[in-house]
Simulated assay, not measured.
Amino acid sequence: MTQKLALITGASRGLGAALAEALAPTHHIVAVARTTGALEELDDRIKSVGGSATLAPMDITVPEAMATLCRGIHDRWGQLNLWLHTAIHAAPLSPANFVAAKDWQKSMAINATATSVLIPYVAPLLGQTGQAVFFEDPRAGEKFFGAYGATKAAQMSLANSWRIETAKTGPKVQVLTPQPMATAVRARFFPGEDRDALASPQQEAARLLPQILTAAD
């Protein structure tokens, strides 16, 4: 394949889906998410602009599934040009002393542990010239954001360590901070918010894409 290859984890909706659509004219998209129907809808939108995608309805918290995914990418294409990690779990807001064990465990599994598994799986596919991009949402230490804030901060700590460690050797690692968006995740946190005042995921994808592609060159 002469076309560049982009892996997007968390591609079924929100910023992940918007970035998949924005990259489709220049990249073949490997779209990973648990929701098959949403991935199929994304595939339709990508095809409508002349792009192509490989759908991978998988759970990123299952290491064996992620190993199979990465081995499949290696066997079929040999390498990746770009990895965008947008998968996230938004646990219900709660005082720290009332965080439910199941919410903490799910947040840790998706936001932190899966990232720690994916980085060593994906890194060999990116090699020295590929690029990984993570997306910051600095909620650590805010009231009621205990489970989300702590596990998102753990994800960002991993990403930033990897970014510094590979600055001279590659792959290129970026951490970008999106503007507030009208997504399902944000609606869980701020249900009464005026969503008309927020950026759409498509607008943010368009704003962030030049930073992603410039760094990839």
Results as ranks from 00 to 15, higher is better:
Thr183Pro: 05
Phe189Pro: 01
Ser161Lys: 09
Gly146Trp: 01
Gly141Met: 06
Pro171Phe: 04
Ala154Gln: 03
Lys172Ser: 12
Thr169Gly: 01
Glu142Asp: 14
Phe189Met: 13
Ser161Val: 14
Met156Phe: 03
Phe190Ser: 01
Ala154Met: 11
Ala147Ile: 13
Met156Pro: 04
Met181Lys: 00
Pro191Arg: 03
Arg188Glu: 10
Thr166Ile: 12
Ala159Asp: 04
Arg186Cys: 09
Arg186Met: 12
Ala159Asn: 06
Val173Ser: 02
Ala147Leu: 10
Lys143Ala: 14
Leu158His: 13
Ala167Gly: 05
Phe190Trp: 00
Phe145Trp: 13
Gly170Pro: 11
Phe145Gln: 06
Thr183Glu: 02
Phe145Val: 08
Phe189Lys: 00
Arg188Asn: 11
Phe189Asp: 09
Gly149Pro: 08
Thr169Glu: 14
Phe144Tyr: 13
Ile164Lys: 13
Phe190Asn: 02
Ala167Ile: 15
Gln179Ile: 00
Gly141Arg: 06
Met156Ile: 14
Ala153Asn: 03
Glu142Phe: 09
Pro180Ala: 07
Arg188Tyr: 00
Val175Asp: 03
Arg186Ile: 14
Pro178Gln: 01
Ala184Cys: 00
Glu193Thr: 13
Ser157Asp: 06
Asn160Phe: 01
Ser161Pro: 05
Ala167His: 14
Thr166Gly: 06
Met181Ala: 04
Pro178Met: 02
Ala187Val: 05
Ser157Asn: 12
Thr183Met: 02
Gly146Ser: 14
Glu142Ile: 07
Ala184Thr: 14
Gln155Ile: 08
Ala184Gln: 10
Ile164Gly: 12
Met181Trp: 10
Ala153Val: 01
Ala182Tyr: 09
Thr169Ser: 10
Thr151Lys: 01
Ile164Pro: 00
Ala167Lys: 15
Met181Gln: 08
Met156Ser: 04
Thr183Asn: 04
Ala150Gly: 07
Lys168Pro: 02
Ala159Tyr: 05
Gln155Ser: 06
Arg188Gly: 11
Val185Pro: 02
Pro178Ile: 04
Gln174Ala: 08
Gln174Asn: 09
Pro180Ser: 00
Met156Arg: 02
Pro178Val: 05
Met156Thr: 05
